[in-house]
């Protein structure tokens, strides 16, 4: 009559040892299932070789004449390195901060003593197209996809993009060489 006895305990309102067993089993199984999901999500992050390949790069600036720019790739992103003319630097520094959608001074966006060099990630902050250098109404960049215009400091001036072109981490190793990353 073991079975009958269990049926009677089941109807009592008190938590029983069997309730505890069921809850413990369910909880352990749920923890296991959650832990098992983790490797399947973690595997989508960049793998070790991709991270290692994203190490800093060095760029020689000597071939870039004034008024010219080059595009290099770092971590799969295009980086514009622009040797700005005096006129471009002046334009960038004379504009009032209040006139900018994303206020930032040109000094903040360049390195002291190397004012003519602008280094920005060439990815439009709207939806990721690559803006064209030396185009648009602000002597800077123009994005052909949706018409965003950036000035000669890479700051957004007009169009749907919300933010300035980001400045990647970089430093001058010498007067004519920078290290990006």
């Amino acid at each position: 009559m073991k079975g009958l006895w269990i049926v009677t305990t089941e109807t009592s309102a008190e938590p029983t040892r069997r309730d505890f067993l069921y809850i413990a089993t369910g909880a352990v199984a749920a923890v296991g299932a959650a832990a098992a999901v983790w490797p399947f999500i973690a595997q989508m992050n960049p793998d070790a070789s991709t991270i290692a390949a994203g190490a800093p790069i060095e760029v020689d600036l000597t071939p870039i004449a004034e008024g010219q720019d080059i595009k290099v790739f770092w971590r799969g992103k295009p980086i514009y390195i622009m040797n700005r003319t005096k006129k471009q630097v002046e334009e960038a520094r004379s504009v009032a901060l209040s006139a900018l959608p994303d206020p930032q001074t040109d000094q903040e966006r360049t390195k002291e003593g190397h004012e003519q060099w602008l280094v920005v990630i060439g990815i439009c902050t709207h939806l990721g197209c690559i803006p064209i250098a030396h185009e648009g109404s602000y002597d800077g960049f123009f994005c052909p996809c949706h018409g965003s215009q950036y000035d000669s400091s890479g700051r957004i001036r007009q169009g749907p993009a919300p933010l300035n072109l980001p400045v990647p981490p970089y430093q001058f190793v010498s007067d004519s060489k920078i290290q990006i990353g």
């Binding site: 067993l21 413990a24 352990v28 296991g32």
Partner: peptide, 20 residues
Amino acid sequence: IFLIILSGLLYFTKRKVWSN
């Protein structure tokens, strides 16, 4: 270790349920 604990719990749960 986890799977052995889980198997043990499942065994006792199964036994309880099947006891009637």
